[in-house]
Design a protein around this nucleic acid. Sequence first.
DNA 1: CTCATGCCGATACACTGTATTTTGTTGTGA
DNA 2: TCACAACAAAATACAGTGTATCGGCATGAG
Lengths: 230, 230
Amino acid sequence: MTVWDRPEPPTRPLPLDRERIVVAAIALADEAGLAAMSLRKVAARLEVGPMRLYGYISTKEELFDLVVDEVHAEILPEEQPGDWREALRAYARRTRQAALRHEWLADLLGGRPTMGPNALAVTEATLAPLDGLTDLDTALRAVETVSAYLTGAIRREIANLRAERATGLSKRDWQRAFGPYLRRMLATGRFPALTKAVYDGTEVDAEASFETGLDWVLDAVAAKLARPPA
Amino acid sequence: MTVWDRPEPPTRPLPLDRERIVVAAIALADEAGLAAMSLRKVAARLEVGPMRLYGYISTKEELFDLVVDEVHAEILPEEQPGDWREALRAYARRTRQAALRHEWLADLLGGRPTMGPNALAVTEATLAPLDGLTDLDTALRAVETVSAYLTGAIRREIANLRAERATGLSKRDWQRAFGPYLRRMLATGRFPALTKAVYDGTEVDAEASFETGLDWVLDAVAAKLARPPA
DNA sequence: CTCATGCCGATACACTGTATTTTGTTGTGA
DNA sequence: TCACAACAAAATACAGTGTATCGGCATGAG
């Protein structure tokens, strides 16, 4: 009898912890979308009964909060720039990148207040460089405005991406060929400006559009920093 | 045997149509949240079997699209201002008001491209006043940027509102007393700027905050209209 | 050795969206 | 008037969900 014959020790399931749960949940969602992140599937991936999870999580919403915070670890810059504009821009870009890696993030963004440690660190990193440049309320407003833009822009981008994927067409083609429906709509003549936009608008890629909008918002912030409110 | 004895004709159920379905769905969601808008409950409210709905919609996502578009009818201004700034502001305010009336809208905003007739009309109303003031791409970017801000700001506002409601505390108290957790977090000293914000920030109400951010974004748009991109 | 305690898997419940099957009704041709 | 076909609607079925509850088992205390 060699070691090879010896039965494997019954591979004690790794002791469960939040971290392992969160990692499994993210993996599932990355592979098959947020809908695939069911407690049962997460548990199955950890080779554990579904109810085991309730020792670490008290509700599914809590799991959502945890995975969102986990992704914020990717968003946090390894070393933060001292310049407020670069800090906000990095925050925006890194969030967008994270959403492109984890599309399900778009479904969750802005859905609940995020108070996890990583999210707090991200807020700190964006807020700190504004310190001293203006009053606190203006600084807060700046971060919130950028963050609101972010949420909306990312959600739209991912929504469009999914729609394109579903039809298999390029965005432009998709707009042009949205069945007879859109054409009929535009043909009614009720939407002249829109019609021009659809037919004459140049196709811009999502990233450029994101960056442009972001620049606008950052310019707006800059203007307010220059002359804080009376 | 008089007419009075005669049994009532069996009250033919009103012939179903999309409109009735959408109205029922919205009512349900208004009363008990988006989760209450299940196909079975909608059908029950119409005194009809669940499968009947599939004669009018082919999937639940489609129902979501329909209810979102229906709400856009409330967003569309009865008479649109010719001034682009007022048009965009009206769009923003009316969307926010709609979301306060129908909180579930926050869950759906930005989740899918909205191409319904009412949504198209809203886009037209916001786009038209920009016509001639700048090139088409800039106009589109303006509308999209405002819309992105809107989505994000509304989602955050509703999320905070729900959180406050859940704890029964005012926002300020909630921040201050977020269990031992937040205090402990801040006490670590890792988040100095955040700590100042939480403790020294004046409480601003949601509407004012929304308006301020909106003004910033509109200012940014105005700046771009003044000198269109090279 | 006995008993109590706490953990963990299995089971159970009330729901969900949707596919499929069964039933009923109504119009039609003979 | 009857038989049948076509279609609309209801009922049933299925695979899944989040979560409450129950039962057994293993481990530690007395």
